[in-house]
Design a protein around this nucleic acid. Sequence first.
DNA 1: CGACAGGATGATATCGATAACAATTTGAAG
DNA 2: CTTCAAATTGTTATCGATATCATCCTGTCG
Lengths: 358, 358
Amino acid sequence: MKNEDEPKDKRLKPGDAQKLTMAEVAKYVGVSAMTVSRAFRQDASVSEETRKRIMEAVDALGYVLDLSAGSLSSRRSGFIAALVPSINNSNFSDTARGITDALQNTGLQLLLGYTDYSAEKEEELIEAMLRRRPEGIILTGGSHTARARRMLAKAGIPVVETWELPENPINQVVGFSNGEAMALLVRTLAGQGYRKFGYIGGTTARDTRGSQRRSGFQKTVEELGLGPGRMISFGVPPITMEQGGQAIVSLLERWPDTEVVLCVSDLSAFGAIMECTRRGMKVPRDIAIAGFGDYEISSICHPRITTINVDCYGIGRQAAARLLDALHTGNSTGDEITLTGYKVVLRESTDRNGAPSA
Amino acid sequence: MKNEDEPKDKRLKPGDAQKLTMAEVAKYVGVSAMTVSRAFRQDASVSEETRKRIMEAVDALGYVLDLSAGSLSSRRSGFIAALVPSINNSNFSDTARGITDALQNTGLQLLLGYTDYSAEKEEELIEAMLRRRPEGIILTGGSHTARARRMLAKAGIPVVETWELPENPINQVVGFSNGEAMALLVRTLAGQGYRKFGYIGGTTARDTRGSQRRSGFQKTVEELGLGPGRMISFGVPPITMEQGGQAIVSLLERWPDTEVVLCVSDLSAFGAIMECTRRGMKVPRDIAIAGFGDYEISSICHPRITTINVDCYGIGRQAAARLLDALHTGNSTGDEITLTGYKVVLRESTDRNGAPSA
DNA sequence: CGACAGGATGATATCGATAACAATTTGAAG
DNA sequence: CTTCAAATTGTTATCGATATCATCCTGTCG
C-alpha cells in the first residue's frame, strides 16, 4: 500500500508528483473507478448521493483529474488551438479574448501561439499544436506554407481562417476584406475634399493584411484619378509607433504637399501624429493623418485619430462559434465565409475645419 | 482488423480524424513501433540510416506524433502553465514572450491563461491547468485563494510567482517591490522640487501590484513630510486610458493646486495627459504627470511620459529559467527570490523647465 | 578463434482515464 | 407475485505512445 503522506524526501522528479489516481479515490469511497469518472461529468448517470460522497473524497484527498489520460481514451483533447501574429497587439488579443469567451462552458480550452508574422514559424506552431490533437484550429490570415496546408488537411479537424478573406480558403473563414476597408477610408476622405494621398506601411509582404490594405489604397487612389499614391515603406511588420514617426518624416521630405496620410495601423498613425506635433506641425491643420484598427489609443489621444473600426472581439467569438458548430454537426467541410463588420470612424485627425475642439 | 482506408462518409467525428498511428508507420517501414518512437528523439540510439527511412515514411504518410499518448506513458506533459492578469496589456505580454523565448528548444510549450485580475478566476484556471499536468507553473503576484495554494502544494511542481515580492512565497519568486519602485519615483520627483503630490489608481484591491504602488506612494509622501497624498480612486482595475482622463478631472476639481500626479500605470497617465491637453492645460507647465511601466506609448507621445521602467521581458525569461533549473535539478523547494531591475525614466511630462522641446 | 562490449532493435507491460457492454437494483404496472 | 423498463454501478478492453528489459549483431582484442 502506498503511503498517503508526503514523502520525507523533498526532492522532486517530474513523474512522481501527484501520484493520486482515480482508482485510489474509488477505493477510498468504495466504488469503482468508472463511477468516479462519471461523477466528474454532469451528464453521466450517478446518483446524487454517490456523487456527493465522491466529491467529498476528492476534496479530502486533493485529487485533481488527469485530462491527459482521459483524452487518450476518449479521443478528445479538450482544447482548440489559435495562432495569432503577435500577442502584443491589442487587436489580436481582443480576438483571443473573443475566442476564450465563446469557449466558456464548452469544456474546451484555448491553446494560444504566436507566429511573429512568419509563415515558417506558423508552420512549426501548427505542427506543435497538431501533436496535441486539438479539436479545431483558428488561424490568422490565409497565407500558409504548403506543408502547413498538407498537415491541416490531413488532421481532419475544422480550420477557421480569420481577419481576411483568403483566395483559397482551407475550410471556414471569419473576416473582412482589408483592401475594401482601406478603399472605403480613401473614398470617404476623398469625399471630404482631400486630393493628395500618402500611405505608410511596412516594407515586406510578411503582413498579408498590411499588403492588402496597401493595394486597396493604391487601387482606389488611382480609380479616383488622384494620381499614384505617395507610398512610404518603413520597417519590418509589425511597424511600431516609432517607425510611424520616422516614416512620416521621409514622406514629407519627399512629398511636402501631401494633404492626408493613411497608415497601415493606428499605432504607426499615432507615432506619425506625435512626430508632427513635436516638429511644430498641427494635425489636421497642416496635415491630416488616419490609421486602421481603432485601437484604444485613437479615441483618447489628442487629436483623436480617424480610423477603421474592426470587430476584433467579434472575429474571435464568431470564429470560435463556427468551430463549435462544425464540431457539433460533425461537418468540417462547410466552406462558409462569415463576413465581419468594419466602419469608418471619423475623428479630429482628419477634420477639414482644423482642430475642432480647440 | 481495422480498415486502413478512409471511410466513404465525409462526416467527421471528433475521434476519427488522423487515424495514423506510430505502429502503422512502423509496419510501413518494416521496423517496430519502438524504433519509430526513438527516431523522433535526438538522444535515442537509432542508426542514422533507419532514422532517415523512418522520417521519409513519416513525411510520405503525413504522420504527426501524438504527444498526448506519449505524455501519459512518459509522465511528462511537455508544457508549463503561466497565468497573467490580462492578455491585453503589453507589460504582461512582454513577460509571456520572455517565457516563450526561454522555453525555445527545451521541448516545453507554454500554456497561457488570463485571470482578469481575479483570484477566483485564477483558482479556476489553476485547476484547469493542473488537470493537464504541467511540469511547472508561473503565476503573477502572490495573492491566491486558499484552495489554489492547496492545489499547488499538492501538485508537487515548481511554482514561480512573478512581478512582485509576496509575503508568503509558495516557492520561487522573480520580481521586484512595486512599493519601493513607486517610492523611488516619489523621492526622485520630490528631489526636483515637487511638493504637492497626487495619485491616481483603481478602486479595489484586486490589483495587488496597484495597491502596493499606492501604499508605496502614500508612505513616502508622508515620510517626506509632504502631508497626506491626494489620492483619487477611479474604476475597477485595470484602469483604462479613459478612466485616467476622468480621474485627473476629479483630482483637479478637489485639489486644484496639485503639482504632480503619479498614476498606477502609463496607460492612465497617458489618458490623464491627453485630457489635460484637451482642456487647454499644458503638461508639465501647468501640471506634471508620471506613469508606471514604461509602455511603448510613453516614449512616443507628446509630451513623453516620466515613468518607472520594469524589465517585463526579463521577468518572463528569468521565471522560465528558474523553472527549468528546478526541473533540471529536481529541486522544487529552493525558495529563492530573484530580484529584477527597475529604474526611473525621467521625461518631458515632469520636466521642471516646462516643455523642453518646444 | 573465442569472448565480450556496446550499438541497434524488438517484445511486453504500462501510464490513467473512458467506451462499451454487462450486471444489478429499484420501482411501477399488470 | 411477476415482469419489465429505467436507473445505477461494475468489468474489461482500449486509447497510442514509452519505459524497461531482452535480444541480436558487429567488431575488436587478447
